[in-house]
Amino acid sequence: MSEPLEGDWIRVPPGYLLTTFEYDTDDPIVWPEHAHEEHELLWSAGGMARLEADGRVWAIPPALAVWVPSRIVHRASAERGARVRATYFTPGGPNTVAMPGVVTGVAMTEPLRVLLDHNLLGSLADDARLRLQRVILDLLMPAPRESFDLVMPRSTHLHMVASAILTDPADKRTTADWGYECGMHGRTLARQFEAETGITFTQWRILARMQLAIRELTHGRSIVSVARRVGYRNPSTFIDHFRSLTGQTPAEYVRGSRGEKPNAG
């Protein structure tokens, strides 16, 4: 299906718990701000999507989904060739009450992906489809550690800085450099940036680099080339930062996104 993401119409058919729509993009696309009555799980069957909600930016590679509760205003975008999927859930349905009332990451495990695909593509009797959908609800597990979400600064000048970093996370300009461009002292910019985002400028830039890194890794780029692309001279530093945020090395993360089993030993 290819209906628009936005609007007030009801997506989940009567008698069911969820439904999924497909959005395969030939060109980069942006869905403007909108909200809906259903809860939503935004995920990718291939390529990279991005979601903005509650002043945060979420990277969505194939290994991650993002849970958007009912009535939360959000906007989404996807790169050329991405295969975006939006699964909508009936508000107040079984087990959705266990999900948080805020936007959060959900690990896109292989069982969850397989069952979502089967619900979308499989030919099932009504009672079998309902049983399948109940299992899908049981598999929804918040995974904020893997979410790569970024709080965007509120101030116009800091929002400009943050947007520039998202465009090119390898940009090595310091807070002093950005302060000069914004007409303020670098230390003032650093303090204001941390006050508005909750983390330091350096920490924020590392997260921005990880957002780009997971996109490049899922496209099959080598770890060394990805490390250089996102601004690391030393690949081991990149691997350390990646592991500290995800609990996995880049290689392990890629294997998981492809549904491969970990190496024995």
Score class of each variant (00 low, 15 high):
residue 3 E to Q: 02
residue 16 Y to H: 03
residue 17 L to M: 04
residue 18 L to V: 05
residue 20 T to L: 10
residue 25 T to M: 14
residue 28 P to M: 14
residue 34 H to N: 10
residue 34 H to E: 08
residue 35 A to G: 02
residue 38 E to N: 01
residue 40 E to G: 03
residue 47 G to T: 07
residue 49 A to E: 12
residue 53 A to P: 01
residue 57 V to L: 15
residue 58 W to L: 14
residue 67 W to K: 04
residue 69 P to W: 07
residue 71 R to V: 08
residue 77 S to W: 10
residue 78 A to C: 10
residue 83 R to K: 15
residue 84 V to P: 09
residue 88 Y to P: 06
residue 90 T to N: 00
residue 91 P to Y: 05
residue 91 P to V: 07
residue 94 P to A: 03
residue 100 P to N: 07
residue 102 V to C: 10
residue 102 V to A: 12
residue 110 E to K: 04
residue 112 L to N: 12
residue 113 R to P: 06
residue 116 L to Q: 10
residue 123 S to P: 03
residue 134 R to T: 11
residue 137 L to V: 06
residue 149 D to K: 00
residue 151 V to A: 13
residue 152 M to A: 13
residue 156 T to N: 08
residue 159 H to D: 15
residue 162 A to M: 11
residue 173 R to E: 10
residue 178 W to D: 06
residue 182 C to H: 02
residue 182 C to Q: 13
residue 185 H to D: 15
residue 185 H to P: 02
residue 187 R to S: 15
residue 189 L to S: 01
residue 189 L to N: 02
residue 190 A to E: 14
residue 193 F to D: 07
residue 201 F to K: 02
residue 202 T to V: 14
residue 204 W to R: 01
residue 210 M to P: 04
residue 212 L to C: 06
residue 213 A to R: 00
residue 217 L to S: 10
residue 219 H to T: 02
residue 219 H to N: 12
residue 219 H to L: 13
residue 222 S to V: 03
residue 223 I to H: 03
residue 223 I to E: 11
residue 227 A to C: 06
residue 232 Y to G: 04
residue 246 T to C: 08
residue 247 G to K: 01
residue 248 Q to A: 13
residue 250 P to F: 04
